[in-house]
Design a protein around this nucleic acid. Structure first.
Length: 234
DNA sequence: AGCACA
């Protein structure tokens, strides 16, 4: 049915092993703002379930939202289409990620009916809503590839997610590192607004107040890519 | 703080 990302229904992973007792948190808390050094392991060390600890906070942050919002690939309209993973050009078929998502979503999948239509927010959309979100506040010490992975991981569960686009730009600050602009496309402005509300102010590491927190806005000039540009009342 | 692509 849905893409391989949504495998939580098969019940093969009822819960994630707690930390697996492998490493302590301090292994990853390197001083000097290298929060992401151990955040996403390299592509070549698969099999170790040590992402469990890092994704705990992500799962917790999502949890409140997952209970009462329409995060589902069913009824999303075009969810049968395989996602190509945006800039990376390939879907992220990381078994760890799927298993982790299965942790939170399996509850909803088993216990609750997730047959929401998707894109049915109670509150009205802001007048500047568009299909595209502009994301800022990502750590500057992340490589482009890491930013892409992070954003894909964060945004992909949301109904209507289409793709992540990264654009490199020179820093304003002289001598500053080049900055990566991030745009996330959704099918409709309502879907974009749903993700925006859920993730606004999200902290990458909830244990560290100094860690980056992403800031989300609707993109100013959505352009033709977002469905024609016509929005608002008529 | 920063808003690009078609």
């Amino acid at each position: 049915m849905a893409d391989a990302y949504w495998r939580y229904g098969d019940g093969r992973q009822p819960a994630i092993p707690p930390l697996a007792g492998k490493r302590s948190r301090s292994d990853y808390d390197l001083p000097g703002g290298h929060e992401f050094a151990g955040y996403f392991p390299r592509d070549d060390d698969r099999g170790a379930p040590r992402m469990a600890r890092d994704t705990e906070s992500i799962g917790a942050s999502y949890d409140r939202y997952l209970r009462n919002a329409q995060i589902s690939s069913f009824g999303g309209g075009e969810s049968g289409r395989p996602m190509t993973g945006g800039m990376t050009g390939r879907p992220v078929e990381d078994p760890r990620i799927m298993g982790i998502e299965g942790m939170d979503l399996s509850m909803a999948g088993k216990g609750r009916n997730m047959g929401f239509g998707g894109g049915r927010p109670e509150k009205p959309l802001p007048s500047d809503a568009s299909n595209t979100l502009f994301v800022e506040g990502l750590p500057a010490n992340c490589k482009r590839r890491e930013v892409s992975r992070i954003l894909l991981y964060i945004f992909r569960p949301f109904v209507g997610f289409r793709e992540v686009r990264l654009v490199s730009k020179d820093s304003r600050h002289p001598g500053g590192e080049p900055l990566v602009l991030c745009f996330v496309d959704f099918g409709t402005p309502a879907q974009a607004a749903t993700a925006l509300d859920a993730l606004q102010g999200y902290k990458f590491d909830e244990h560290d107040r100094d860690s980056a927190d992403i800031r989300l806005q609707f993109a100013r000039y959505p352009g033709p890519r977002s469905g024609g540009g016509s929005r608002g009342k008529r």
